[in-house]
Design a protein around this nucleic acid. Structure first.
Lengths: 342, 342
DNA sequence: CTGAAAGCGCTTACAG
DNA sequence: CTGAAAGCGCTTACAG
């Protein structure tokens, strides 16, 4: 029988204590040096850093966070990673973190389920993050309460159509919908179709739809036909729903889509069915994704600033770590992209 | 002058101590109840849970992790979030975490920079994660050393063409490249073009290229023309590079792309230029993205299993929390998808 | 079934 | 410029 052999290259856990012992200084001194804080003699620093390297010492942030009551952690909840929009927001967050490379993001994905979000927020808060960034303004009552009562800052990303807990960073989806409608009316379209996805889950898509309807109403028009799936948005769903829309009411001259994924599906349907855009059917999306720009005819759409939303969200909480007394909204705007499909 | 007023709805920090005091039990008992561990009288549990609810107590995991020396954290480093492949891996990771909802993933994005990866791994390790999942087998010397010496498990995701530190979960990109080449040769293609992106950063694309070349060589063929950008892969880059490839050597009858994003760009070029696929130009990608399947003609490609890679990576470390003495490789496979463009 | 005590690995005043 | 001591909020044996 052999005893369990220690692998020669697996170092045993090294702590401040060992470093202090080896370098003949106190633990406080090692701590000061590791955090680059407080006065230290150059000679001492040299000596300590040498043993730090020799021992391969990596400070335990768990202990550091507990002692300093500062985690350098931000919690993030996004509804999806399948929809490229949210990875783009995350990229913005990473960009905003920039040189603040001490800060780590802990990411959870709720799959558009606000009950799941509640559990995730609870889990994140137990790490006592400096801030938590959630998506949208719609949460369970319990989530809202936890976030209201939490110590750090709370950013609600993407939309500013309602009342934020602390700060909301995003755009007005209702206005974007309205602007889309007006733009298309001005271009002369009269018979509007709408192709949508599950807005039980994606309430922002619904806001855009409502804005669109309002614009049409103000122009004395309305949606002539619509095809709405209760699946999440995807290129495939957009393709299928476009086929359904056109089979029902071929007299539609423009189809407005709940987002670009759906609209790209519409474009693929047209390409496959030999319909020319915008003459046989005009196609109009939302988001301004790269894929839309690269289509043989660039997709007409509204540009939202996902990257900017993430970046501004982080910058805001980095700039003002304490929650202000009044909730605020930061509008990252949107912009009609003319394109060639409408 | 007014003193800073305490917001009425911001609860002050509540700890086990307060709960124990209020519920007239010891801190250990509260701890046992919160962790559902050890024997507790039903009555006691009731009493304690009541005050937990009344006080809105959320255990501090930082303290819990330090005391138990168990973080329930996994660190993840992916090279990119722009490339939809990696969000898909992350989704697989979340899926694999499944009911293990105590575990949180801390995600970092290296932007294909192995020096940046080194800093991220160092940062992640300071949280003493139960495991770290990195992308690929290529790292700096220091990264390898840190990961070798770390306590928890280490998964290298995506590829299995080299030697892993602990466990590699992925597929052989060289084999995939080879299989693609053979498949296309068998279909009768002879004049091969290659359209690629920056493989300094994306070494797996290079492996596939090498596999492709090997297959052609074995068939007495070779790449007749190629267009390689040093930008990251994107639909736009694929479109531009296809134009360049064809302007240089229009006699190419099939274009093999470094991945589906690039290939979709190729398809868009063909659609715009009035080239019919596969007769004027056959197009072949890699990954099997949803967008490719939805094109008017489904993209011919190789399906990799990104979601599965993430899921298996997590499942592996959940199943075997201790590092085995020998490194292992888990092959998640790939599959030629016939499609209609080649 | 429950509690008192020690300890996880740091940081933070405080004293010198 | 440096060190000794207390403490961050939990968990973990151990004793009863």
């Amino acid at each position: 029988m052999r005893t369990k052999r220690r692998l020669p290259d697996r170092k045993s856990k090294v702590t401040v204590k060992e470093v202090a012992l080896r370098a003949q200084v106190s633990e406080s001194t090692v701590s000061r040096i590791m955090r680059n804080k407080g006065p230290v003699a150059d000679e001492t620093r040299e000596k300590v850093m040498e043993t730090v390297r020799a021992l391969g010492y990596v400070p335990n942030r768990i202990a550091g966070a507990l002692a300093s009551l500062n985690t350098h952690l931000v919690g993030v909840v996004v509804p999806s990673l399948s929809n490229i929009v949210f990875p783009e927001v995350l990229r913005g967050i990473h960009a905003g973190l920039g040189q603040a490379d001490e800060i780590q993001a802990v990411i959870s994905v709720s799959e558009y389920d606000i009950e799941a979000e509640e559990n995730m927020v609870r889990g994140l808060l137990s790490w006592k993050p400096a801030a938590v960034l959630v998506t949208g303004l719609e949460h369970t009552e319990a989530t809202r309460r936890m976030l209201m009562n939490s110590e750090g800052r709370v950013v609600e990303m993407m939309e500013i159509d309602g009342d934020p807990i602390d700060v909301a960073v995003g755009m007005s989806h209702r206005s974007a919908g309205y602007a889309s409608g007006r733009h298309l009316v001005e271009k002369g379209y009269r018979r509007f179709g709408y192709v949508g996805h599950d807005w039980e889950a994606d309430s922002r898509a619904k806001l855009r739809y409502e804005g669109l309807c309002a614009a049409l109403r103000d122009a004395g028009l309305s949606i002539a036909a619509q095809a709405i799936t209760n699946a999440p948005s995807s290129v495939g769903a957009g393709k299928d729903m476009t086929a359904r829309l056109l089979s029902g009411d071929p007299a539609v001259d423009v189809a407005v889509y709940s987002n670009d994924d759906m609209a790209v599906g519409g474009v693929f349907h047209c390409l496959g069915a030999g319909l020319s855009m915008p003459d046989d059917l005009a196609v109009f999306g939302f988001n301004g994704l790269e894929i839309g720009r690269q289509l043989p005819q660039p997709l007409s759409t509204v540009r939202s600033n996902r990257h900017r939303i993430g970046r501004v969200a982080i910058e805001t909480i980095l700039k003002t770590p304490d929650r202000p007394s009044e909730p605020t909204k930061i509008d990252t705007g949107f912009e009609i992209f003319e394109g060639a499909t409408a």
